[in-house]
């Protein structure tokens, strides 16, 4: 079996931040004595990612996702723990490591704004020492996948957000990195552009076999791209496993939706009614009793029942439950 491409062990990051109260007096006091506070951003997380995997890295704002990605891409030194990416310790920032990975941040630009993207690409080609033939092949591929042709010769500052994101992607992938850290790659994009970026990431992974660790607040990104997710909250790893199992483990209920002929009436005897309209109701029932409850509904509602479906709750709902829960998942599902 191949060694993991990303290997993280008890990784920890504590930021030291300056604190000051508001007001003139506090400002003057801070001139003499500064107050600092330690903020634990990542608290000893451990995971590994195998070659070619696309893994969703989920967590609410401030969970420690971006800090982790910054450590794994060599931008930040950790406070503790160990990590290797492509066999390198990221924060040593060795040339081979930097040439083998990329970090793309949805809200940040790495291109020179005043010149066309094509010229920035040529600079990157030399910086990453990409051979001429490989450069042409990769650029052609990226141009096709991202439909870049009309954008390449416009100054970057003249591109729309979506167009800029596409050329940012191309810039980050020109050197064919084996590992791509994608931090909110679809942030701020419209639905159609989000879909296009998603399709691109999936196809890029298929074609290149690159390992991808992706953060996104859009669950559609995660559902479309990741079979495996890692969930962190308050810097602690809550879940690492298959996306489909996340719903099963985190949501101890299933959702039964019924459509009736006539008004809904009182359905609380079947479970927790979470939504109802004139003739439709959604009921949460314990996961282990979903079949039995559905059968009882068919039996007791008889001819009044026009339609019934039993589903897992939506993934957004599950994730939201994880994020709003203060308990680690292991405890919650124990």
């Amino acid at each position: 079996m191949d060694a993991p491409v990303v290997d993280v062990r008890a990784l920890r990051k504590v930021y030291r931040v300056t604190e000051r109260e508001t007001g003139l007096a506090a400002t003057l006091r801070s001139l003499v004595k500064r107050r600092h506070r330690e903020v634990l951003a990542v608290d000893g997380i451990t995971f590994h990612i195998d070659p070619g995997e696309v893994v969703g890295f989920l967590g609410p704002n401030g969970a420690g996702k971006t800090t982790t990605l910054k450590m794994l891409s060599g931008l930040l030194y950790p406070t503790g723990g160990e990590a290797t990416v492509l066999g390198h310790v990221p924060w040593r920032r060795e040339g081979d490591f930097l040439r083998g990975m990329t970090l793309l941040m949805g809200n940040r630009s790495q291109l020179v704004w005043d010149i066309p993207a094509a010229d920035s690409f040529l600079v990157l080609k030399e910086i990453y020492a990409v051979p001429e033939r490989q450069y042409k092949r990769t650029l052609d591929e990226l141009t096709e996948l991202l439909e870049l042709q009309p954008l390449l010769h416009k100054p970057v500052r003249g591109l729309s957000l979506g167009e800029r994101m596409k050329v940012e992607f191309a810039a980050g992938l020109l050197h064919s990195p084996g590992v791509a850290f994608l931090d909110e790659p679809t942030l701020g994009l419209d639905i159609s552009m989000q879909g296009r970026i998603r399709r691109f990431v999936a196809e890029y992974n298929q074609r290149s076999g690159a390992t991808i660790l992706l953060t996104s607040h859009y669950m559609d990104d995660v559902v479309a791209l990741c079979r495996r997710v890692i969930v962190i909250h308050h810097g602690v790893l809550l879940y690492d496993g298959a996306l489909v199992d996340l719903a099963e483990r985190m949501a101890p209920y299933k959702r039964i939706t019924v459509t009736l002929r006539g008004t809904v009436g009182d359905l609380s005897t079947f479970g927790e009614v979470v939504a109802s309209s004139d003739n439709t109701a959604t009921i949460h029932v314990p996961r282990t009793q979903a079949g039995e409850r559905a059968a009882r509904m068919v039996r007791e509602l008889g001819d009044r029942l026009a339609d019934i479906s039993v589903e897992d709750p939506a993934i957004e709902e599950v994730i939201d439950k994880v994020f709003t829960s203060e308990r680690p998942l292991a405890e919650a599902t124990a």
Binding site: L75, R93, R108, S109, I127
Partner: peptide, 10 residues
């Protein structure tokens, strides 16, 4: 935040 992209390059 414009230093970071430069630090990511070799």
């Amino acid at each position: 935040g414009r230093l970071s992209p430069k630090l990511l390059r070799p």
